[in-house]
């Protein structure tokens, strides 16, 4: 096992975030504050409780998920896309490091960054709304599992992307809408049919629901189903990555 190699990639990726520390910290804090001012303060005060939970508190898990998903994808995608773009990938490809070790470095760093970001958002939220976390262990586990799964997904996007437009395409045009429609700001029970059923085809529903369960003890779907979908997505990404390295797709010409 090339632990030095994994460590090198991990440190490199973390250092990249440190260079833009200001941006990495201020952006999520500011964005979250804006959401709370708009949804929590302005609109939330006119909303009823959702399933016995104050609306401001209700949107916290969804809000964290929204950032977690997009940031996991962006971080991991840029991490592997940038060496492709600058050409420094030659070094990674010629190094005595296995595919899984390389993924461990990139995805490990992306996961670390997203989880930290999730916790920062959580801390920011605590300033605005009363928070209770019924299952803190499950909350952390869900945070980790989701960050890993979507960092893996981001890694695939980064390998696939041929230019910066494609790199931003998936987070902006797929993940953000899916998250907004995935019950980040409402319970899907509030939707009329057939939209409620249609929503069940949106994988993000399961993520948000599971995460919300860890906060309030209830979600739109059973926690087991949420866990299953998340783990399944993670496994699928692993299979795709294994295939990428086996064939050299978009990495080796």
């Amino acid at each position: 096992m090339n632990t030095h190699g994994i460590w090198a990639i991990y440190r490199f990726e973390m250092a990249r975030a440190l260079r833009t520390l200001w941006q990495s910290l201020v952006t999520p804090v500011l964005t979250t504050s804006l959401y709370f001012i708009v949804f929590g303060g302005a609109i939330g005060s006119r909303m009823q409780n959702v399933g016995g939970v104050d609306y401001g508190s209700f949107i916290v898990p969804g809000l964290i998920m929204l950032s977690l998903l997009t940031q996991s994808i962006s971080n991991a995608a840029i991490g592997i896309y940038f060496p492709k773009f600058t050409g420094t990938i030659y070094e990674l490809l010629s190094a005595p490091i296995s595919a899984m070790e390389m993924v461990l470095g990139y995805v490990g760093a992306a996961t670390t960054k997203s989880v930290l970001l999730g916790l920062i958002i959580l801390a920011t939220a605590a300033f605005f709304v009363p928070l209770r976390i019924e299952h803190p262990g499950a909350m952390i586990a869900f945070l980790l599992l989701t960050a890993i799964a979507f960092s893996l997904f981001g890694f695939i996007i980064g390998v696939w992307a041929g230019n910066f437009e494609q790199l931003n395409f998936v987070p902006a045009l797929l993940i953000t809408p899916l998250t907004f429609l995935g019950g980040a700001f409402y319970s899907i029970d509030m939707l009329p049919q057939p939209w409620r059923t249609v929503s069940l085809f949106n994988p993000v529903v399961y993520l948000v629901s599971g995460f919300r369960w860890s906060f309030f003890g209830k979600g739109d779907v059973a926690i087991g189903v949420s866990l299953g979908v998340t783990a399944g997505f993670l496994a699928l990404c692993l299979v795709i990555i294994a295939w990428i390295f086996k064939t050299g797709w978009r990495l080796k010409n």
């Binding site: 030095h4 190699g5 090198a8 990639i9 440190r11 070094e91 990674l92 190094a95 490091i97």
Partner: peptide
Amino acid sequence: TFSRRLFG
């Protein structure tokens, strides 16, 4: 240093 580590 990165290169040295990457190569184990």
